[in-house]
Write a protein that binds this DNA or RNA. Sequence first.
DNA 1: CTGTTAGCGCGTTCAA
DNA 2: TTGAACGCGCTAACAG
Lengths: 321, 321
Amino acid sequence: MTIADIARRTGVSVSLVSFVLTGRKDVAAETRQRILDAIRETGYRPNSHARSLATRRAEAMAIAFEVRGYQDAFVLHFLAALGQRLSEHRQRLVLVSPRSSQDLLSLALERSVDAILVMDVKRPDRRVELLRKHDVPVVLFGQPHPEGGFAVDVDYAQAAALVANRLRERGHVRAGLVGGPESYGYIRDRVQAWRTALRAAGLVVAGRWSTGLSEAAGRSAAMEALARVPRPDALVAVTDALAIGAEHGALELGLRIPEDVAVVGFGDIPSAAWAPVPLSTVHVPIEEMGAAAADLLLEAARRDPPRAQLFPTQFVNRASV
Amino acid sequence: MTIADIARRTGVSVSLVSFVLTGRKDVAAETRQRILDAIRETGYRPNSHARSLATRRAEAMAIAFEVRGYQDAFVLHFLAALGQRLSEHRQRLVLVSPRSSQDLLSLALERSVDAILVMDVKRPDRRVELLRKHDVPVVLFGQPHPEGGFAVDVDYAQAAALVANRLRERGHVRAGLVGGPESYGYIRDRVQAWRTALRAAGLVVAGRWSTGLSEAAGRSAAMEALARVPRPDALVAVTDALAIGAEHGALELGLRIPEDVAVVGFGDIPSAAWAPVPLSTVHVPIEEMGAAAADLLLEAARRDPPRAQLFPTQFVNRASV
DNA sequence: CTGTTAGCGCGTTCAA
DNA sequence: TTGAACGCGCTAACAG
C-alpha cells in the first residue's frame, strides 16, 4: 500500500495525495475528503523512510547518556516530559548510551536523527566537540558553554545560595561538602557552586569528600567528615542518594539530625521523604526541564540561534535541617 | 556525499561500493581497500533512510511504556542492557510512552521500527491486540500469553515460593499482602502468585491492600494491615518502594522489625539496602532480562517462532525478615 | 486546483 | 569481479 495506490483508488494524482498528507491547503474540499476516505478505508500509512529521504529530515531526536550512571528516577521523569513534548511535534525519541563518540556521530551523519541531546557533559567533552566539528545540532544537558550553544540545566548558583542561606539562618557555621566523582561535569559544577555559595554566606567549608554516587559512598564520606575536629555541623551533599547515605553515617555515629548535624541533599527524589530523617533538599523542576530540552532540540534542528536555559530550584524543608 | 561520490572518487561503480558497505565477500581485495580508503578519507556515511527504503528494514526497535509509571531505577538498568545488546546488532532503540494504541501502531506501520517491546501489559491489552491484528512483531514484558507470542518476564511462581518458604522457615504464619493498582498486569500477576505461594506454604493470607505504588501507599497499607486482630506477623509487598513504606508504617506503630513483623519487598532496588531496616527482598536479574528482551526483539523482527523466557530470582536476606 | 516528473540515496538483479 | 539500470515510496518543482 503506497501513495500511488491511494491515488489510483481515488482517481487523482500522487501529488494531491501528498498534499493532503502534508497538510497543504490548496486542495478542493471534495477531493480532499475523497482522499481522506480512501486513506481511512485502506489504513494506509506513509513510509517514514521514503518521506525522510525526500525531505531530508529524520523527524527524530537522540538523547545520549550513560544509562548506568543514573541511580534515581529523575532521568525517567526527564525522559517522560521530553518524550511527550517531542511526540506533540511528531518527533521520535532515540535513546543511545554511546560507547564511543563515533557511535553518536554516526547516528547524526547517517541522518537517523535531526539533533542530539547530550547529557553527562564533561569539560572538555570529546563527544560534543566531535559533533560540533561536524556541524551536528547539539543541545547540552549541562551548564552553558562559554562559547555558546544550546543548553539546559539547573541554575546552580541560585540553588547553592538557597542552601547556603538556609544553613546560615539556622545558625550552622561549618559545612562538610559531600561531593562525587568530578569526572562528571555536573558534579564538578555543583561542588564548585556549593563551595562558592557557602563561603559567600559566611560558612566555613570544612573539607570536601568525593567518592562514588551511591548511598554507601555518602555514608563513608559522612563518617570521615564527622570525625574531623572541629566537627562540621552541616553536611551538604550534591545528590539525595549521597545525603541519605550521609544520614545513615551520622546516625551510626550517634549524632542527632539536625541538632548535632544538619544534612542537605539535592534533587528531591521520591525516597528523599523516606530517608531515616526526612531529607531537606533542593527540588529540581525536572519535568519543565524535559519540555524545555525538547523545545531546544527542535530549535537546534531548525538551526535557530543558540540559547541556554537555566532553571531555578526550590528549597524543600523537611526534617534534616 | 553519497555512494555515487565514493564510486566516482574510486573509479568504480556504485554497486561495488554498496557491496563493500554491506560486507559482501566477492570484491577484489585491492578494490575493496581503495573503496575503504575513500570512505575513510571522506568520512562518508550511508544514509539510513535510503538504506531502509531499499532493504525494507528500519534497523530500529521500539520500547513502549508509561514512563511516569516507574519510580525506581530498575527500568533504567533494563534499558541499559537492552540498548547495549541492540546496539551490538546495529539496531537503534526508540522510546515511546504512547498515549494511544494508535501512536504505537503508526510507529510500526510507518516502518519506523521493526518490532515493539510492550511493557505494563494489562489483560486484555488493547495496544497488543491492535498490533497483533496488524501483524506487527511484538514482544511482551509480562507473563506469556496463553495463546503464545514472544515474552520475557520474571518467574513469579518461583519468586513467590522463595518468599513464602523463607517466611515459613522463620516461623511466620500470618502474612499481609501489600499490593498495588491491579490495573497493572504485573501487579496482578504478582499478587496472585504471592497469594498462591503463601497459602501453599501453609501461611494464612491475612488480607490484601492495594493502593498506589509509592512509599506513602505502602506505609498506609501497612498501618491498616497491622491494625487487624490478630495482627499479621509478616508484610509481603509487591515492590520495594511499598515495602520501604511498610517499614515506616510498622516502625511508627512501635513495632520491631523483624521480631514483631517481618517485611519483604520485591525488586532489590539500590535503596532497599538503605531502608530504615535493611530490606530483605527478591533480586531480579534485570540486566539479563534486558539482553534477553533484545534477542527476542530481533527474533520477532525476523519472524522466528515465538518464545517466552522466564527468569528465576534470588532471595536477598538482609535484616527485615 | 491538479497532474507529470525528477530526484532523494541505496540495494540488487542481470549482463558482461 | 565489475557495471548499468531499476525500484524502494515520497516530496516538491513545474507545467497546465
